[in-house]
């Protein structure tokens, strides 16, 4: 999951980025609204955390312009101005949730997870599919009711695919959303993860949850449970 953090206070931004990276997110950051808007326009993100009081271009304008561009990823507002006018306006121009400063990192994590899950169309913290269930809060995978251990990277790949069910996800998209920019982007590694996931999810090869679409990428094909 690739995130964008726009916050002008250096220390706070650094801590936020570190805390999110510790939670296995890929995080880009910007210290002013203009740069932040540039990042968000140029790259594809799964979610953004935007401070409202930003230099160059304020947070509300950044959000407004992103939504005008048709960007639909969830946006979490950080605000020091603890007033309803700002919160409501932020949500009104297109943000999805807000956190008031000072905040607990845990709260940001929880809100982000909820936003990412909701953006994928899941109302509950568990992504439920036929025979498969991924609890993104606890990071637990159940296959036919039995917990299956996943490595951090396996989890990241599976979570991304499950959050985009039925959609063809290219290898580039996967690498972009799962790895740092300076990370070695060997697509063979990705193939290895996919193979391992297939074995863990479907040892009997009856479900075949991940399709390989030649020349395009992968698709998680199990329909979500009602």
């Amino acid at each position: 999951m690739r995130l964008l953090v726009i916050e002008d206070e250096d220390l706070l931004r650094a801590r936020l980025v570190k805390a999110l990276e510790d939670s296995d997110y890929i995080v880009d950051s910007a210290s002013d609204g203009k740069t932040g808007l540039f990042h968000a326009t140029e790259y594809d993100y799964d979610a953004a955390i935007i401070d409202l009081g930003l230099p160059e271009l304020d947070g509300l304008s950044v959000i407004r312009q992103l939504r005008d561009q048709g960007k639909v990823f969830p946006i979490l507002i950080l605000t020091a101005r603890d007033n309803w006018a700002d919160k409501v306006e932020g949500l009104d121009v297109g943000a999805d949730d807000y956190v008031v400063k000072p905040f607990q990192i845990e709260e940001i994590r929880a809100r982000l997870k909820a936003l990412l899950r909701r953006a994928a169309g899941f109302a509950k913290p568990k992504l439920e599919f036929d025979g498969l269930s991924l609890d993104i809060s606890a990071r637990r995978l159940l296959v036919a009711g039995v917990e299956v251990e996943l490595t951090a990277y396996e989890y990241k790949v599976l979570e991304y695919l499950m959050l985009h069910p039925g959609k063809v996800v290219s290898k580039t998209e996967l690498t972009e959303h799962l790895y740092d920019q300076d990370h070695d982007r060997d697509s063979n590694v990705l193939e290895v993860f996919i193979r391992r996931l297939r074995q863990k999810l479907d040892p009997d090869e009856t479900l075949k949850p991940i399709d390989t679409i030649r020349g395009q990428g992968y698709r998680f094909n199990v329909p979500p449970s009602a």
């Binding site: 206070e9 706070l12 805390a19 020091a80 400063k101 000072p102 905040f103 607990q104 990192i105």
Partner: peptide, 9 residues
């Protein structure tokens, strides 16, 4: 509030 947020994190 921002310094408070820094301290808190």
């Amino acid at each position: 509030k921002t310094p408070l947020a820094v301290l808190s994190t």
